[in-house]
Design a protein around this nucleic acid. Structure first.
Length: 332
DNA sequence: CACCAGGGTACCT
DNA sequence: AGGTACCATGGT
């Protein structure tokens, strides 16, 4: 439904918040940088976000902060401002309150208290300096789970494409302003459970199709209760998620971290693996299990948060890590 | 064009 | 236990 109507607005006062690194750091896959701001969908609502600062008497005016040309947001991104700032949010429907948005964005979280728990070493200092204002979102569990089932050995750009195909083909249409890039909600488990493996493969997801379908059926049938998963301990929750085919420790940890707010959950993907090996184990090549045990103790109570800073820093500053020479090979 | 991508799994020693 | 091939597809 393409409604050509003015959008409704609110302003969230935040501090130490960077929209660009938060929305483009690979934790969520439906945010697009446009000339008018960051456009996305949260639940059943189309949303546009923009950072700015209040000006004039009572800060009633609004001076937008320029968007970065590169969505990834390099260090010192223009979208970031250290001090108090406002996030201007636009939607098509008028909610009674904006709690859903505050929760999703984690706008009330004291970021400094999180950063203070990171280990004080050179890689973390560099990552924090490069990713100022990066927040972990609080996403809806089903969308997060489904998205990360699609993520295995896929580049983030491709995951975004697959997710968009899924939304347009199987998700419910949303009220959007004219010219909106995103027009459909993420499909519910029931909507995907009603598809076939062939339908899903047509969305370019390849061998991941049966895994997504199985997850959709499990959630739709009640065999997997995602609300209940959030009630148990981290260990129990991880066990439940890993019962699904195609969901191993990495994907389970992503869902725990990005949807359930388990900030100690530490997903180890290929990027983080490379970083950990080079930075903390330059000599040995520890096995994944050993590496997981290390990160779960070394990075503290917000290890997952630290992981996201490392991950984003890795991806935006590839040369920092790539520049390190490999072990010299014997000439034969 | 090779190589790799926010992995997981089955199947080998 | 510890390694390895394979899965499907497209970006770089």
């Amino acid at each position: 439904m393409n409604v050509n109507a003015p959008t409704l607005q609110t302003r969230l006062p935040v501090s130490d918040y960077d929209l660009a690194s938060t929305l483009a750091c690979g934790q969520a896959f439906r945010w697009r940088a446009t000339e008018l701001g960051w456009e996305g969908v949260i639940g059943q609502r189309w949303v546009r976000l923009r950072a700015g600062e209040g000006v004039g008497p009572g800060r009633t005016g609004f001076r937008p902060v320029p968007l970065p040309h590169r969505p990834a947001g390099q260090a010192g991104s223009l979208s970031y401002s250290k001090g108090p700032i406002d996030i201007l949010a636009e939607t098509m429907t008028s909610p009674a309150d904006w709690r859903w948005l505050v929760d999703y964005l984690q706008a009330e979280l004291n970021l400094a208290s999180i950063l203070a728990t990171f280990p004080d070493d050179e890689p973390m200092r560099a990552s924090v300096a490069a990713c100022s204002g990066l927040r972990l979102l609080r996403q809806e569990p089903w969308e997060c789970l489904a998205s990360f089932i699609l993520s295995s050995t896929k580049q983030i750009v491709q995951i975004q494409q697959i997710v968009e195909l899924l939304c347009v083909r199987f998700g419910s249409p949303l009220a959007t302003p004219a010219g909106a890039r995103l027009t459909h909600a993420f499909p519910t488990a029931a909507q995907l459970a009603a598809t076939s493996e062939a339908d899903l493969r047509a969305c370019k997801m390849g061998f991941r199709a049966p895994n997504l379908l199985a997850a959709a059926c499990a959630v739709d049938s009640g065999g997997l209760n995602l609300s209940a998963v959030g009630q148990g301990t981290v260990v129990e929750a991880r066990e439940q998620l890993m019962k699904l085919p195609g969901v191993g420790p990495k994907i389970a940890n992503c869902v725990l971290l990005f949807a359930y707010g388990q900030q100690q959950a530490f997903p180890v993907d290929v990027w983080v693996m490379k970083a950990l090996r080079q930075l903390y184990f330059p000599k040995r090549q520890p096995r994944p299990e050993r590496l997981q045990r290390f990160v779960d103790t070394y990075f503290g109570p917000n290890a997952g948060y630290a992981q996201q800073y490392l991950f984003h820093y890795m991806r935006t500053r590839k040369q920092f890590f790539a520049a390190r020479p490999e072990q010299p090979r014997a000439i034969r």
